[in-house]
């Protein structure tokens, strides 16, 4: 990585200290959240998991309801066959020739490829290596009518799908095609934003200070109200988003 340009860090921080009239060093009383170490977070995370486990049915109901309100088209079914039929009908309705999907566990439970290929649709798994460069995958994504992904978390409070980085899951799969389908397993659901950030902070500490280069929320379709405060969907991201809730 290149050298920093501009004002040297020490000089910049010294000028901030002068403005504050304080000496270098940590706050006298540590900020309560930062004072919590990994053991406390482990305990809290265990409580969160137990709470979610005990209320999963109600949380799934809430997720379905809130997600719908935030602009997702929600299809709830525990049956993988029915989920595949739904995705098939979406692809059919779109007249999509190409579909991109991530490489994630959920596709083992919902093996869509054969169904879609049977309809004459080209399905590309977005994972580089094995002969597929990042550039060629990007072109595939740009040409596709639909992007299908799993999620890492689904937040009942906000109706959001949350995606964190991994091999086989590009950020553009859920963003560039005009239709995004998110496959949500019952295990993905959590209750609130607080739950999410607690889990991520714990993950960060467990990994020795690594949270991955991104964390993305998706809540409904791309939208704007920049002209005359009139809502338009699908301005730069998908105009249509579907949440298939597998439970």
């Amino acid at each position: 990585m290149a050298e920093a340009t501009g004002t040297p860090k020490s000089e910049f921080l010294a000028s901030v200290r002068r403005a504050l009239g304080r000496q270098a060093g940590p706050p006298q009383t540590e900020y309560p959240r930062l004072a919590q170490g990994i053991e406390q977070l482990e305990d809290q995370a265990r409580e969160v998991r137990e709470r979610v486990q005990a209320n999963r049915g109600a949380l799934l109901d809430k997720l379905a309801e809130v997600a719908q309100l935030r602009g997702w088209q929600v299809r709830r079914t525990p049956d993988p066959e029915e989920a595949m039929d739904y995705v098939q009908s979406l692809a059919d309705g779109q007249g999509a020739n190409r579909v991109v999907r991530s490489r994630q566990e959920v596709f083992e439970a919902v093996p869509l490829d054969a169904t879609l290929t049977g309809m004459g649709i080209t399905v590309t798994e977005v994972a580089h290596g094995e002969g597929a460069s990042r550039e060629s995958l990007r072109e595939q994504i740009a040409m596709s009518g639909m992007g299908i992904t799993g999620v890492d978390y689904a937040i009942a409070e906000t109706g959001s799908a949350v995606i964190v980085p991994r091999r086989g899951l590009g950020r553009l799969v859920s963003l560039v095609p005009p239709v995004h389908v998110a496959l949500v397993r019952p295990d993905d659901v959590i209750e609130s934003l607080d739950d999410l950030f607690l889990m991520r902070r714990l993950e960060y500490m467990r990994n020795g200070g690594d949270m991955g280069p991104y964390l993305n929320f998706i809540t409904g379709p791309s939208r704007t109200a920049d002209i005359e405060q009139t809502i338009v969907v699908g301005v730069h991201g998908p105009k249509e988003v579907h949440m298939v809730l597998l439970g």
Partner: peptide, 9 residues
Amino acid sequence: ITSYVSMVS
């Protein structure tokens, strides 16, 4: 909530 919240690290 907005449609997108993006966190870059």
